[in-house]
């Protein structure tokens, strides 16, 4: 564990807490893409299958449970909660995310570290996480103005993988057998997808204005 990875995990956790706060405090999920949340639930379920087989550390196991539980709770809330689900922008959240799932699964079958069930699903989860934010970014562009909590949620979500890139650079220089090129390439793509969001987020922060994404 190094400071970059720890900061990355904490940033990721903060993004989830901000989303939970938004849904719980405002009893609304307007501006949030259910499809992105479903993709994240799939990412965590596919990646953390080793929860019961590979014990790494208490921290690792606890965080896996937190990520799986929170992502499922958010999907449940947006689908079933009688008050929250009424504020879901169903007509705006129209990204065909099943194509993302199919493409990532096909890629994972072609490119993975070892052609085993767990490794294919692990690579699938890495590829899927890289593109999972797309429905959310499309929804933000369509819904025009973005409320503060949603903007902060997406910002922290993008920042966490940037810390992981620093972690991979650090591990590359400090560990002999470190080769996580699947994670690195996907992580770079994932962070790059946030580039324009980060730009508009910075502009809104500098001008102290409302976050606006161009349609």
């Amino acid at each position: 564990m190094n400071i970059f990875r720890f900061l990355g995990d904490m940033t990721h956790l903060i993004s989830i807490l901000i989303l939970l706060l938004k849904i719980y405090a405002t009893k609304s999920c307007s501006g949030i893409s259910l499809k992105t949340q479903e993709l994240y639930a799939l990412v965590f379920l596919a990646r953390y299958l080793d929860l019961f087989t590979d014990f790494i550390s208490v921290y690792n196991s606890v965080m896996k449970v937190v990520f799986i539980a929170s992502s499922l709770a958010i999907v449940w809330c947006m689908r079933r909660h009688r008050v929250v689900r009424r504020s879901y922008d169903k007509e705006l959240d129209t990204f065909r995310h099943y194509f993302l799932v199919a493409a990532c699964l096909a890629l994972a079958l072609l490119v993975q570290e070892k052609f085993t069930f767990l490794e294919v699903l692990w690579a699938f989860s890495i590829y899927l996480e890289a593109v999972a934010i797309l429905p959310q970014l499309v929804l933000l562009q369509r819904s025009g103005n973005v409320d503060n909590l949603t903007g902060q949620y997406v910002f922290f979500l993008g920042a966490y993988r940037a810390f992981y890139i620093l972690n991979w650079i650090y591990r590359y220089f400090t560990e002999t057998h470190f080769s996580r090129w699947i994670s690195c390439v996907s992580g770079l793509v994932q962070t790059a997808l946030y580039a324009d969001f980060f730009y508009y987020y910075f502009i809104s922060w500098k001008n102290n204005s409302k976050l606006q994404l161009p349609a």
Binding site: I56, F67, E175, S179
Partner: peptide
């Protein structure tokens, strides 16, 4: 440091 078995990152 040997590369840990499996994936040790979240």
């Amino acid at each position: 440091k040997e590369k840990p078995q499996g994936h040790d990152e979240l």
